[in-house]
Design a protein around this nucleic acid. Structure first.
Lengths: 157, 157
DNA sequence: CGTGAAAACGATCATGC
DNA sequence: GCATGATCGTTTTCACG
């Protein structure tokens, strides 16, 4: 698929990535355009799936999700990779599912309240998924950065 | 720090995590409250750092960031862990920096345009950071899920 | 903490270029 | 693809309970 983004689009993306609740009018002022034109651009960016979602970032500690871990999951490939990934993605504590190179199969990012909840998740959800052979867990002690803001270039192509 | 969130707060968080661009008025309608009350709640949630940010999720492929990888970084602890993490966080391609248990030191999440850019980042940025002893890179072939939406409970405590 | 009202502002749409 | 201008809804502030 082709996206063909110009500098105006990239500025919109940059501003909305920084603050998704910004006004179209404020973007318009920054760009020296009419608000209606910005609205039109934003809608097209959503339609083209360049803008995928607008998420509020909630403090995990505030809602008692103090534990973060990454789990490497080895999968029996005969049973089918695709399906396993989807099943992993359905677990609400699982925030990310990545298909990784090498023999590990998947790496997932998991948030739980504590280590007990993590163990329970591994026993009750993970190990019951078809094709899961083994797991290796990485415990996060502290997160220094986690904003997932991409580098929006000045210009494309 | 104490947060003391009631059911109204949790509903606001749930709605804003799902769609950060939602109206205060619409949240107010859902809750059966006045819009001004919702505004007050939201501002307090921001002030208490329960709501940390509002990010638009941009499609990485649309801006030519097709490669995703995770890198484990072993650090010489004598030189000081804290400082190394901050230096890693300053690299724009580095989206996340996690201090992990065990002898690895850090795990970082990195987006680049391709493998060449990844190698260049490792040579020019990573290996020049004080205390970095060795790295191990995990290449992501495909991402099945990546929304980082937390589980907002019905009730807390 | 919440309501309700008033004023200011933004979103949205039709129209024309 | 953008600007204009009208309409309508939303945001924001504030006095009050």
């Amino acid at each position: 698929m082709e996206y063909k983004l110009d500098e105006v689009d990239l500025t919109i993306l940059r501003m909305m990535q920084e603050n998704a609740r910004i006004n179209n009018s404020e973007i318009a002022r920054e760009l020296g355009m009419a608000p209606s034109a910005v609205l039109e651009r934003v809608k097209k960016l959503e339609q083209k799936e360049v803008l995928l979602a607008y998420h509020a970032k909630v403090n995990p500690n505030a809602i008692d999700q103090k534990m973060l871990s990454f789990i490497f999951i080895k999968v029996d490939e005969i049973i089918g990779d695709e399906e396993t990934g989807k099943l992993l993605a359905e677990i609400p504590e699982v925030l990310e599912v990545h298909d990784i190179a090498g023999d590990d199969g998947y790496m997932i990012k998991v948030r739980t309240s504590d280590s007990l909840a993590l163990v329970s998740l591994m026993r009750n959800s993970l190990s019951r998924i078809q094709g899961v052979i083994s797991t290796r867990t990485i415990i996060v002690l502290q997160t220094v950065k986690e904003d997932n803001k991409l580098i929006i270039p000045e210009k494309l192509n």
